[in-house]
């Protein structure tokens, strides 16, 4: 099978896994995140009473169809990128089977795309953050995200060279350590944002931010596991379909045999 067909198949599977992830993220967000958003909006309205004009999009629409649209579009886009990165790294970094590669990639993507930018610029519910600084906050957030991705790419190159000299474990540690050092430096150089309004419930803030991390965890767990399973079947099929090429028994079974 030619690589064009192979990569198209992976791309479709990545976006499909993204679609599933988007629906799960919506369910998670609706159950865990929306109560915090409601509390935050109640606080916002108690501080500055809303205008009498009808909102452009009703709150119930924002919580259901709006949130669903947002999570699906986001997850499908990330799913497509995820599939292509997978196609690029598979067989080049380590020799893990497709499923294990995808799961590892999912974990790495969670840290690089969601967790590290979040640590510097955590998510904020409505009412937290000044209107006049939105341009500044958006800029620094995307710069931090970009720096995290660049640091990860640099760390992969560093780690790959280190693995050749120091072996798999120590080489991987060098890569991870390199990434951490770079993002800590980036985070120290980037400006701080401190715009917490007086009297905002710390409890609501904490749970809202946990909901953000949870939503991303749902995304990358789904991509890592569902895309991994789909990709493994597709690759086996595409490369001549030697059934049982990757056995699905548990690692302990392997340990017992050898």
């Amino acid at each position: 099978m030619d690589s064009q067909k192979l990569v198209r198949g992976l791309l479709i599977r990545g976006m499909l896994a993204g679609l599933v992830a988007g629906v799960l993220m919506w369910a998670f967000g609706l159950a865990i995140g929306e109560p915090q958003i409601r509390s935050a909006i109640a606080f916002e309205e108690s501080v500055s009473p809303p205008s009498d004009e009808a909102p452009l999009v009703s709150r119930s629409m924002q919580e259901t169809l709006g949130l669903l649209t947002g999570t699906i579009v986001y997850a499908v886009a990330i799913g497509g990128i995820f599939a292509l990165v997978f196609a690029g790294v598979y067989g080049r970094i380590g020799r893990a089977r497709p499923r294990v590669t995808a799961a590892t990639l999912g974990l790495a993507a969670f840290v690089v795309i969601a967790f590290v930018p979040f640590l510097k610029y955590p998510s904020n519910p409505p009412a937290v953050g000044l209107d006049e600084t939105i341009a500044f906050r958006t800029r620094v957030y995307f710069v931090m995200l970009l720096l995290s991705v660049v640091a990860a790419i640099a760390a992969v190159r560093l780690g790959r060279d280190a693995v050749k000299r120091l072996g798999a474990w120590n080489g991987a540690l060098v890569g991870v350590g390199g990434y951490l050092a770079l993002v800590v430096i980036a985070s120290l150089l980037m400006p701080a944002v401190k715009e917490m309004p007086e009297g905002f419930s710390p409890d609501v803030l904490w749970h809202f931010r946990l909901a953000t991390l949870g939503t991303h965890a749902v995304l990358y767990a789904t991509l890592g596991l569902a895309f991994g399973a789909l990709a493994e079947r597709w690759i086996t099929q595409a490369q001549g379909g030697a059934a049982g090429r990757y056995r699905t028994s548990s690692p302990s079974a392997g340990a017992l045999r050898s």
Binding site: G29, G33, E34, I37, P55, L56, V57, M61, Q62, E63, L65, G66, L67, T69, G70, T71, V73, Y74, A114, P117, F118, Y121, P122, S123, N124, P125, P126, G129, D131, I134, A135, R137, T138, R139, Y141, F208, A211, T212, T215, H216
Partner: peptide, 27 residues
């Protein structure tokens, strides 16, 4: 939000909750 291709705020309001929840600066 910070920039705008389409006029108005309808799109912003429609995906508003997802934007907050995913951690993007919103308003």
């Amino acid at each position: 939000g910070a920039t705008s291709v389409f006029p108005g705020m309808t799109l912003h309001e429609f995906v508003h909750d997802a934007r907050h929840l995913l951690g993007f600066p919103c308003h």
